[in-house]
Simulated assay, not measured.
Amino acid sequence: MAIMIKTPQEIEKMRQAGIILRQVHEAIRQAVKPGATTMDLERVAEAKIAELGAKPAFKGYHDYPWCLCTSVNEEVVHGMPSAKTVLKDGDIVSVDCGVILEGYYSDAAETYPVGKLSPAARKLLDVTKASLEQAIQEAQVGATLGDIGAAVQEMCEASGYGVVRDFVGHGIGRNMHEEPQVPNYGKRGKGTRLRAGMVLAIEPMINAGTHEVKVLKDGWTAVTVDGSLSAHFEHTVAITENGPLVLTR
């Protein structure tokens, strides 16, 4: 499949979807606390998406049943909301969500602290979030996908963290997943060259231990092989002549 170049009008539609998604994440942020379940977060998101006139992007995608992916502690990505998963003080929960507005998608993830974190958990969140910001700065016309991946890899591996290989970012637009794939590792100057009108979901998934992950028997939830914590941050970013435009800010 070819890389789809978006017009300024299409990017504006995606920005409107991104504004809604940011409001959904703000509602989730307020609901994350000790004693809440990941199903509580799902219900908050579902209600907020409906209230704002959008549709959930994940629900029904490859038969996935929920609006959110909620991945707790050693869960890396695609954890499923459950009334049995109760958040405890010191946990971290990665919440991934997407919405559709007038046929255009936005996608964003954030790892939320539950109560008071250990210094080690706090550092993992801070470094992963900073690596996303560094990657966004590389999303310039004429740069490459390798520049984006290298920015994440260099920062996170310098802290001794594992950069997940099995899951990567992606193009996004009228479809949830479009070309190109956007790895969180790579070599500067290598890979597809970035052009104005490309829109990418950039999403570092970073483990406190090794990069290795495995998928559980539910067929969705990916966890760290060594049981270490994992963090996940994501923004939808448009490549423009004036630099990167974060649509989910």
Score class of each variant (00 low, 15 high):
133 E>V: 08
50 A>P: 05
118 S>M: 11
61 Y>L: 13
102 E>W: 07
93 V>F: 01
137 Q>I: 05
54 A>F: 07
109 A>I: 02
117 L>W: 15
26 E>K: 15
130 A>C: 02
103 G>R: 03
141 V>D: 13
135 A>E: 02
64 Y>I: 05
118 S>F: 11
45 A>F: 08
90 G>K: 02
89 D>N: 14
27 A>T: 09
47 A>L: 13
80 M>R: 14
127 V>H: 08
126 D>M: 12
54 A>P: 11
86 V>G: 03
37 T>S: 15
32 V>I: 02
80 M>Q: 14
120 A>K: 15
112 Y>K: 00
88 K>M: 04
44 V>T: 13
86 V>H: 03
115 G>W: 05
88 K>Y: 04
130 A>L: 02
72 V>D: 05
92 I>Y: 00
112 Y>N: 01
72 V>Y: 05
120 A>E: 15
97 C>A: 15
123 K>L: 13
123 K>S: 11
37 T>G: 04
64 Y>V: 03
30 Q>L: 13
90 G>I: 00
117 L>C: 12
27 A>P: 03
80 M>D: 00
112 Y>P: 00
110 E>L: 08
106 S>M: 04
135 A>V: 12
93 V>W: 02
130 A>W: 01
63 D>A: 15
41 L>M: 09
67 C>K: 07
74 E>S: 13
129 K>Q: 12
41 L>W: 01
33 K>S: 11
